[in-house]
Design a protein around this nucleic acid. Sequence first.
DNA 1: ACCCGATTTCAGAAATTCGTAATGCCGCCG
DNA 2: CGGCGGCATTACGAATTTCTGAAATCGGGT
Lengths: 225, 225
Amino acid sequence: MTTVLVVDDEPIVRDVVVRYLKRDGFDTLEAADGPTAQKLIEEGAPELVVLDVMLPGMDGLALCRWIRSRGELPVIMLTARGEEADRIVGLELGADDYVTKPFSPRELAVRVRTVLRRAAQAAPPEERLVFGALVVDARSRDVELDGRPLQLTAKEFDLLFFLASNPRRVFSRDQLMESVWGYAAALDTGTVTVHVQRLRSKIERDARRPRHLETVWGVGYRFVP
Amino acid sequence: MTTVLVVDDEPIVRDVVVRYLKRDGFDTLEAADGPTAQKLIEEGAPELVVLDVMLPGMDGLALCRWIRSRGELPVIMLTARGEEADRIVGLELGADDYVTKPFSPRELAVRVRTVLRRAAQAAPPEERLVFGALVVDARSRDVELDGRPLQLTAKEFDLLFFLASNPRRVFSRDQLMESVWGYAAALDTGTVTVHVQRLRSKIERDARRPRHLETVWGVGYRFVP
DNA sequence: ACCCGATTTCAGAAATTCGTAATGCCGCCG
DNA sequence: CGGCGGCATTACGAATTTCTGAAATCGGGT
């Protein structure tokens, strides 16, 4: 399921947008301000952000820069006037698209789809991830720690590679089940737990105090570079 | 410093693309038409060309053919929205990638990086592979171990040569079926297994504990130098 | 048509991994 | 500080995957 984060300080606007996106089959997250948005991006792992330029506190432009600086998360901006739109998309910010207010929610939903499709084909899957002493190579499917090869099983590697491909993002056990195992078995969460433990015993120097594979209490796990 | 030539007749598009590339640390050249582009390619020695399909005078396809005919210069094509034919033609002409309009400049910058990286490490196919005591010669199609010739069958050689041409990379049985045998996605993966065993019995000193032809459990096989 | 090696198919054995459950532990909250 | 719920850890049987040897089929050459 694709998750979209909607950031706008006006509850009415959020509500309309969210309702339309849900009708189109998206999961949604909502934030009224920058800090909340940042938190949701790190923990909720949205695939796209719809972002109002005008926000109280940290404004939309700053938030967009922050998003841009931390990875490949696509952004659609909501702008007040058409004149600045070109700059927003093309230059300073690197937003992937924009919609000028007032807009029809229908149009926004279409843009969301377009941008996601584009982002999917634009994402060049990284084939060799390096985090200090830890190296994960997708082509040869082997993992090195301090230059020494580690023996991971297929599932262990898939799990590690998925988490490491999305550093710092938190995934629930259900999400991991779906992304790594391929099916959504909402009931069986223990399997994920055991695999994370096994992974830790191999890639962590001290499995009791993990450096890379962090537990986020009550939520799930994440990989920290 | 890496130089990229941007060819598009619309100044605004050029400008946006150029600024983005510069921000990403590239040098840039600009051309609005084919003849100018040719001149800049010969005099400015760019490492990559971003090329709009639609150009006044000499069109993008012709220019791409010309570039392709004169060397190894990578090309990324800009194509109109949704024109499947253009994509195919572009790639058949030897373009290394394409981006459909409208695109986000960020997406283009990502592609530029990807294509350059790919081009940098693209090595011409070797005729003669040497891994210590093991020598695989593509021309004569024979294999030596410790200086002694081995008698491999046709399929055995094809399989070994394919794996040895991509050292350390893991291939599933399906992939091997497609790459070595030629037919796609046959359900019969057992054939691959048997051939790997036979190869081992010939090129490995101890087939029980292979040194070169490793099994990657749950995934496939790989060749290790 | 026949022969012979190469290739594919097949079934049972062997090896490895995966999922589950049971138990103990730790962090969070009142 | 004590209870509770989520997490860590262990162990083991089931399920998957690979190996092996032999039999069946294919295909080129004579």
